[in-house]
Design a protein around this nucleic acid. Structure first.
Lengths: 274, 274
DNA sequence: TAGTGGTCTAGACCACTTA
DNA sequence: AAGTGGTCTAGACCACTAG
């Protein structure tokens, strides 16, 4: 590569006098330094392609130990703010569209407006597995399954329709609380199913069927978000298969890339790359 | 809380003799230890609620320094595998539905089958901003904008339809390459727009309009995934607004929660929580 | 050769929890 | 009081990149 601006000249930016570390603060030193550097990026003092001061320089500059600086750089790297290159330096990374990620966690927040969403159990019966379900769950057709249908309702009306097939195993009885779940918290985490080892999920856009549209009170044709989930037990056998159908017009996931001006609250974590 | 199993008794699991650190390996010590513990979780040797050996124990057990163990625990914490509690210990976290996250990055991978996807520029003209667009971009209606429409095609046919409005600023000329972008790489990152400071994105399910359905060769009514993006320049003013419309049946984002058995490749990073 | 990031050590002090 | 995680230090060695 060519030349780098270690100390970029930005006539259009009035660089604030460099913040320093407050040893009396409750905020850990490493977190302060992360915040300071993020702030410099947010203010445009540091821009994509610019080289971060070397670790030794940062040590002298802020009066902290090499390990602490290392930790800070790791965190910034994990956050996608900078990228380190052996023997060359650490550089500010440009913003990329692909950085965006949508957290399923947000579904709880989004659904819950002022009032927390309620979960209504529509059905919970024993059924025999049909062909497709048997395939998903890796069992024989006709296998006894627990079939559940739930409706998640917010203030504005129904938002999500949830269908789930649970493998019925007498040796591993399903606790009643697991079925009668009436809160999103119960569906999403908390002391949920302690027998789940891992799961695979996918998300896609679909047309709502007639029954589904009716339940969600959406006049057809209507689009919905379909979140499918397949959970595995500790013996690596599929244990639960199902999906959420969410009204497209009542559910939206958001994400940010880069650092916006306002976003200056004390932030997360850390970092390392093998 | 009650009692914890520091050394859980699992008659049903044959715990493999504990792996040890290979100092001659190219794999860093901390990465090895992360892998070892992840493996124990994957094998069910460590289960949700179990307490991880204390840091001092891990030091003795694997013959590494406290700082290295700390780094390992931080990484596991960042990955959501464990959660530390001051004064009590570090515990294996149960799998939660909300842990799932969908990376927009995957769009490139998903669209590209064997052949990389191609991007066809349908239109690139100067238009006057309508009311809604002006509102989004924070400019006056009638403001001159660059209006672009692109079609992203995979082997199987068209997948995404992209519409974008770019603020036209003579003082900040848009490079031709930016407009004529004919690759996903160009849209998603690489040496893309170096003038973007940050962006906001959202994803939702919508019904495709007639024109859109025709372009995507989907017989209406058809559902699609709509990914809207709004990018800001370094002066914090909106610079670009647009959205991707993707055929629901040709695009699906995937995610995993927990640790599956096969997933034993050397992994990511690290960690810290303020 | 000099500078850089990447890893690792062997301690230290603190706040917190539990008993 | 003992054990735990959380933070921080002041060095060290290495691999890599550059001039």
């Amino acid at each position: 590569m060519g030349t780098f601006r270690k100390t970029p000249d930005r006539g259009d930016v009035d660089a604030p006098s460099p913040e320093s570390i407050d040893r009396d603060s409750d905020e850990p030193v490493y977190a302060q330094l992360v915040r300071i550097i993020r702030r410099q990026v947010a203010d445009g003092v540091l821009r994509p392609g610019d080289q971060l001061p070397s670790e030794a320089q940062l040590c002298r500059r802020y009066g902290v130990s090499p390990m602490t600086v290392r930790r800070v750089v790791n965190i910034l790297s994990d956050q996608g703010i900078v990228v380190g290159e052996q023997g060359r330096g650490t550089f500010i990374r440009p913003v990329e569209l692909g950085d965006a990620s949508f957290q399923l966690q947000r579904l709880q927040d989004l659904v819950g407006g002022d009032q927390p969403a309620s979960v209504r159990l529509l059905q919970a019966t024993i059924v025999g597995a049909d062909r497709k379900t048997a395939e998903k769950l890796g069992c024989v057709p006709g296998q006894r399954l627990i079939y559940m249908r739930r409706l998640i309702e917010a203030e504005a009306g129904p938002v999500c329709y949830h269908v789930e097939y649970l493998v019925y195993d007498p040796a591993r009885p399903v606790v009643e609380a697991e079925i009668a779940t009436t809160s999103l918290q119960g569906l999403f985490g908390g002391p949920g199913q302690p027998l789940i080892k891992h799961g695979e999920l996918s998300i896609e856009a679909v047309l709502l069927g007639d029954d589904e549209a009716r339940l969600l009170q959406a006049p057809p044709p209507a689009a919905g978000l379909r979140i499918e989930h397949l959970f595995f037990a500790y013996d690596e056998r599929p244990m639960s298969w199902g999906w959420f159908l969410c009204r497209g017009d009542r559910l939206r996931f958001g994400s940010r890339v880069g650092i916006s001006q306002e976003h200056l609250a004390p932030e997360g974590k850390s970092v390392d790359e093998p």
